[in-house]
Simulated scan of single mutants.
Amino acid sequence: MPEQGSQPSCPAPWDRSDPIQQELTTILRSLKHDAALMGILSLGNDGVMRSLTADRHVVDAVGLSPAQIATYLDRMPSAFRQDDTLLKQADGTKVPREQWFSPDKALLPEPMSQEVRERTERRMREDEERGLGSVKTKREEMEAQGMKFA
């Protein structure tokens, strides 16, 4: 049973002792996130992992090696996988750094729709009203666990 105040840990569905998995975990933890808590992580077909805002502006990015890309894909449930043919050929370490932050828009997912944005904001307000914490409080808790925000 976890100590009071500690976060429960969920077992990862991948081998945590695998060096490439450990390396990928470190990389993903190092990325800065959207301070509004409405952003996403997106792996582009160019092999670059990007932290994006709801409007799909790049907050942070890193080029992944082919081994890291394969490892990341192994983490994804099959229901979330799309055709990953291009990704299997990608090497984000060869993409110029300026393209990490100013990618071709075709590499990015569609911006969050107004409907989804409103639903998410409503859920965050409801959470705050129920005493589950404000965006600021949640962000502070996440920062205490090592997450970084832009």
Results as ranks from 00 to 15, higher is better:
residue 129 E to C: 05
residue 82 Q to V: 00
residue 22 Q to V: 07
residue 125 R to T: 09
residue 119 R to I: 15
residue 116 V to E: 13
residue 42 S to Y: 15
residue 116 V to N: 15
residue 128 E to W: 09
residue 115 E to F: 01
residue 10 C to T: 04
residue 46 D to P: 03
residue 124 M to A: 09
residue 4 Q to S: 12
residue 94 K to C: 10
residue 34 D to A: 01
residue 98 E to C: 08
residue 16 R to T: 13
residue 85 T to W: 04
residue 17 S to N: 01
residue 149 F to S: 11
residue 18 D to V: 08
residue 105 K to D: 04
residue 93 T to H: 05
residue 13 P to A: 08
residue 20 I to S: 08
residue 46 D to F: 04
residue 46 D to W: 06
residue 90 A to M: 01
residue 58 V to E: 00
residue 64 L to K: 13
residue 39 G to E: 11
residue 48 V to W: 00
residue 7 Q to D: 04
residue 141 E to G: 10
residue 80 F to S: 07
residue 21 Q to T: 08
residue 97 R to V: 12
residue 105 K to E: 07
residue 53 T to E: 03
residue 51 S to G: 07
residue 112 M to N: 02
residue 111 P to N: 14
residue 126 E to A: 14
residue 131 G to E: 01
residue 51 S to W: 05
residue 140 E to G: 03
residue 36 A to M: 09
residue 27 I to Y: 04
residue 126 E to T: 13
residue 14 W to L: 04
residue 111 P to I: 12
residue 125 R to F: 12
residue 16 R to Q: 01
residue 46 D to Y: 08
residue 56 R to A: 11
residue 36 A to N: 10
residue 90 A to H: 14
residue 95 V to E: 03
residue 74 D to K: 10
residue 42 S to I: 05
residue 13 P to T: 00
residue 46 D to H: 03
residue 3 E to I: 08
residue 127 D to S: 13
residue 109 P to G: 05
residue 38 M to Q: 14
residue 120 T to K: 14
residue 111 P to S: 13
residue 19 P to C: 12
residue 88 K to V: 04
residue 29 R to A: 09
residue 133 G to E: 14
residue 55 D to K: 15
residue 62 V to E: 05
residue 108 L to A: 11
residue 148 K to L: 12
residue 120 T to L: 11
residue 62 V to F: 10
residue 25 T to K: 05
residue 99 Q to R: 13
residue 140 E to W: 06
residue 47 G to S: 07
residue 10 C to V: 02
residue 4 Q to T: 11
residue 38 M to G: 02
residue 97 R to D: 10
residue 126 E to H: 06
residue 74 D to F: 03
residue 89 Q to T: 12
residue 108 L to Q: 07
residue 100 W to V: 01
residue 137 T to C: 05
residue 123 R to T: 13
residue 112 M to A: 14
residue 127 D to H: 14
residue 95 V to M: 11
residue 52 L to R: 08
residue 6 S to L: 06
residue 148 K to I: 03
residue 133 G to S: 00
residue 61 A to W: 04
residue 36 A to Y: 10
residue 89 Q to R: 13
residue 19 P to K: 07
residue 4 Q to H: 03
residue 60 D to F: 06
residue 30 S to C: 01
residue 145 Q to G: 09
residue 73 L to M: 11
residue 61 A to Y: 11
residue 15 D to G: 09
residue 73 L to D: 07
residue 41 L to E: 12
residue 32 K to L: 09
residue 131 G to A: 11
residue 77 P to D: 02
residue 92 G to L: 05
residue 116 V to Q: 15
residue 32 K to W: 09
residue 13 P to K: 04
residue 141 E to R: 08
residue 71 T to R: 07
residue 120 T to R: 15
residue 10 C to H: 02
residue 75 R to N: 00
residue 21 Q to V: 15
residue 103 P to V: 01
residue 66 P to S: 10
residue 125 R to Y: 00
residue 129 E to Y: 11
residue 93 T to R: 13
residue 12 A to Y: 00
residue 87 L to N: 12
residue 49 M to A: 08
residue 58 V to M: 04
residue 2 P to Y: 14
residue 90 A to P: 04
residue 27 I to A: 14
residue 6 S to R: 08
residue 12 A to C: 10
residue 90 A to W: 03
residue 46 D to N: 14
residue 39 G to P: 10
residue 48 V to C: 01
residue 50 R to T: 02
residue 148 K to F: 06
residue 93 T to G: 06
residue 27 I to S: 00
residue 80 F to G: 12
residue 78 S to L: 05
residue 127 D to R: 15
residue 82 Q to F: 03
residue 63 G to E: 10
residue 54 A to G: 06
residue 113 S to E: 11
residue 149 F to N: 14
